[in-house]
């Protein structure tokens, strides 16, 4: 029943995994680039696109890790984490890419439905997570709140002083998600989750 062998992925499996991810990345890049006029992107769309790509890539990597893991290693919350990441990536991408596929009203209804599904997935993740993962989530939220609050204060003060122009809600969301991802990275790395 017990074993001292800790799982480590073999080099051929790692190389195959990297090739697979490179193919997925190229495919996603081609699809996104082909549907969006990258030269005409505003800074907020460009930032949202980068965040969406990061979320999708992280979700694919997590899904690949779970899929390649031997049956003897418990999968933990890997599947749910991958689902949450992928859905978040789609949610970020849909307002920019969706109008190529359907009218804005239909895209918005789809976004509402996806938001509910993603919230349920997040709730399930919280319920199934062990205490360290919950701690990482709490620390991420606290760090992101503190940093977002500071960023919003500085921006609001600059706007009040007439030093800067308006930023769209979409731009603010892109900045918020950037801060959240950075906070998540910091909180995860502190616990060795990288």
């Amino acid at each position: 029943m017990s074993t001292s062998v800790d799982y480590k992925m073999s080099w051929p499996a790692r190389i195959l995994g990297l090739l697979f991810l490179a193919l997925v990345g190229a495919g996603v890049g081609y699809l996104i680039g082909g549907r969006l006029n990258l030269d005409a992107l505003s800074w907020d769309d460009a930032l949202a696109l980068i965040i969406a790509a990061l979320l999708l890539a992280t979700g694919v990597v997590m899904a690949a890790i779970v899929a390649l893991r031997p049956a003897s290693v418990p999968s933990g919350c890997g599947v749910l984490q991958a689902v949450v990441m992928l859905l978040a990536g789609v949610l970020m991408l849909a307002p920019m890419w969706g109008p190529n596929l359907a009218d804005p009203e239909t895209v918005f209804v789809g976004l509402v439905v996806l938001s509910v599904v993603q919230s349920v997935a997040n709730l399930l993740l919280w319920r199934r997570a062990d205490e360290m993962l919950r701690r990482v989530m709490v620390e991420t939220s606290a760090l992101a709140f503190w940093a977002s609050q500071m960023a919003l204060f500085l921006y609001a003060a600059a706007e009040r002083l007439g030093l800067t122009g308006g930023v769209s809600a979409w731009g603010m969301l892109a900045v918020l998600m950037t801060i959240y991802l950075l906070a998540s990275t910091v909180a995860s790395m502190r616990r060795g989750l990288h």
Binding site: D6, Y7, V73, P74, G76, C77, D130, E131, M132, L133, R191, G192, L193
Partner: peptide, 8 residues
Amino acid sequence: VSRQTVNA
């Protein structure tokens, strides 16, 4: 718990 938690 997860293996990552044991490692941490």
